[in-house]
Design a protein around this nucleic acid. Structure first.
Length: 489
RNA sequence: CGGGACGUAGCGCAGUCCGGUAGCGCACCUGAAUGGGGUUCAGGGGGUCGCGGGUUCGAAUCCCGCCGUCCCGACCA
């Protein structure tokens, strides 16, 4: 921050830019405990909008919310072999309580499969008790060595869905259905394009049969895993004796899924849409969609313009053209701050649309608008201002997605790419590279070692190249899959 | 845990080499003017200079020890 007022630009130093946006837009702040953070109202407001939209989707697809406890007996963590192997190193463990050493240490949940399937086992006897479609909003703790605001912190907020089904196919359908819900949310609410697909064996969730994921591209061309959905098979059901009597009379193990998205998405939002002036929030997730800045010179004028601004706000919020989803409007009537300074501040905070209302506008019976995304300005007639504003917001929402998708596609490489060319891309601008892979984990490890890029996913059909590579990029052997490579957060 | 840097006001820093009254910018408070893209002037508040010890008449500055933070690597929603 050479200039106290200007942000470091994305081109200068992307990660410095990111940190400055988070801190200066007051989305979050560092907490006294290294690696954990405080989510401030501006950031939490976005998370609340995310929660509401997702929660509605979960409810609409038949899920119910519950809450399971933070502390998990150590023995539970050890019941599923891969799970404990994957998570034990990053767990925080409570060894003392009430001033005494505990008989059995308690793990602070890094995720809740173990406790939840233990409970499900208590609740399920018959196929008639299935499926269980449950979700919880919770915090989890993972003792990361290297942390970044929103993207990786010791503690974070998320939702974790957990379901139990009578058959493999039903669980598989659930895991994929949720993936679709996430995708819809990311595209239509976050305006963030994603590639959906399957994780390779080495990248899948500890204890899962298969992990599906959504991968987004940030403006520095690195990938961000924005969400995951797992088909857990019967792994946890066997470990926790989650059994039921089938219609046939046989005792069978249930089939589970789990799926989650976290406050990491706020980081994804920032890095997808932010610009050198700060945050850019898609209207649907903006706690405030419209800020009205009244403009005045004298005290008399101030009273008049603040009144006019409040009247405008009332007209906007009173408009029912969006049904229950009323326009979210704020009037910035602060005295002692120039309008220009207010503009910069609201731009930093990513408010999608600014309306300036001064004596001249009032005279002309119009209001002056400025879009946050394109910074295009235009007068809007007072007559019919609400639908016009709603229309502008809808355009901003749509244009953000289009722009983000164009950026991603411009940094996506397909076709027969040699390993040398691949290295050039990864050392240089980065991006998504679609390439053939023979399916050998050793090749995957080698590429990771040599280039720091990883297989983000085996993409779902609609994302695959029309002419999929026939050979493995590294070995030249026949390709088993087309995969997406990228450096990732 | 290995490699590098740094701890001075809320934030960003100068001062440290060469010991001598703790400073600057931003932010904050008060007042006045200003007011359609970061306003100006005047006044003001705020710091055990990371902690502990040593050298010295005197330490932010020199010496020893400790602690902490950040960046790079090993792990990762």
């Amino acid at each position: 921050m050479a200039d106290d007022k200007k942000l470091t630009t994305r081109a200068e130093d992307f990660s410095a830019w990111y940190n400055e946006v988070v801190l200066r837009a007051e989305l979050a702040d560092y907490s006294p405990v290294k690696g954990s953070m405080v989510i401030r109202p501006n950031g939490y407001g976005i998370w609340e909008r995310m929660q509401r939209a997702l929660d509605d989707k979960f409810k609409a697809t038949g899920h119910v919310n519950a809450y399971f406890p933070l502390l998990i007996p150590e023995s539970f963590m050890h019941k599923e072999a891969q799970h404990v192997e994957g998570f034990a190193p990053e767990c925080a463990v409570v060894t003392h309580g009430g001033g005494k050493k505990l008989e059995e240490p308690l793990y602070i949940r890094p995720t809740s499969e173990t406790i939840i399937y233990h409970m499900f086992a208590k609740w399920v006897q018959s196929y008639r008790d299935l499926p269980i479609l449950m979700n919880q909003w919770a915090n989890v703790v993972r003792w990361e060595m290297r942390t970044r605001l929103f993207l990786r912190t010791l503690e974070f907020l998320w939702q974790e869905g957990h379901t139990a089904h009578a058959t493999h196919d039903e669980a598989e359908a659930e895991a994929k259905m949720i993936l679709g819900q996430y995708r819809d949310f990311m595209e239509n609410w976050m305006a963030m394009p994603v590639v959906t697909g399957l994780k390779s064996e080495s990248e899948k969730f500890a204890g899962a049969l298969r992990t599906y994921c959504l991968e987004a591209m940030m403006q520095d061309n690195k990938a961000l895993q924005a969400g995951t959905s797992h088909n857990l098979g019967q792994n946890f059901a066997k470990a926790f004796e989650l059994k039921f009597q089938a219609e046939s009379g046989e005792i069978e193990h249930a089939w589970n899924t789990s799926w989650g998205v976290s406050t990491r998405m706020v980081g994804g939002l920032i890095m997808t849409h932010g610009d050198d002036n700060g945050l850019v929030t898609p209207p649907k997730l903006a706690p405030i969609e419209v800020v009205i800045v009244p403009i005045w010179k004298t005290d008399d004028e101030r009273a008049k313009m603040v009144e006019a601004a409040n009247k405008l706000k009332a007209e906007l919020t009173g408009w029912s053209g969006r049904g229950e989803d009323r326009l979210r409007v704020h009037v910035d009537a602060r005295d002692g701050m120039r309008s220009g300074a207010k503009y910069y501040e609201w731009e930093l905070r990513g408010i999608p649309l600014r309306l300036e209302l001064g004596p001249k506008d009032l005279e002309k019976q119009s209001v002056f608008s400025a879009r946050r995304d394109t910074r295009v300005k235009a007068a809007i007639p007072m007559e019919g201002v609400a639908p016009a504003v709603a229309q502008l917001l809808a355009s901003i929402q749509a244009d953000l997605f289009t722009a983000a998708k164009a950026r991603r596609d411009a940094a996506t490489h397909r076709g027969d790419i040699t390993y040398d060319r691949f290295k050039e891309i990864m050392e240089g601008p980065g991006g998504f590279v679609y390439a053939g892979w023979n399916g050998d984990p050793a090749v995957e490890a080698q590429v990771k070692e040599e280039t720091k890029a990883t297989i983000r996913c085996i993409p779902d059909e609609e994302f695959r190249s029309p002419n999929a590579p026939k050979t493995c990029m590294v070995t030249g052997q026949p390709a088993k899959y087309e995969v997406v490579w990228a450096k990732a957060y």
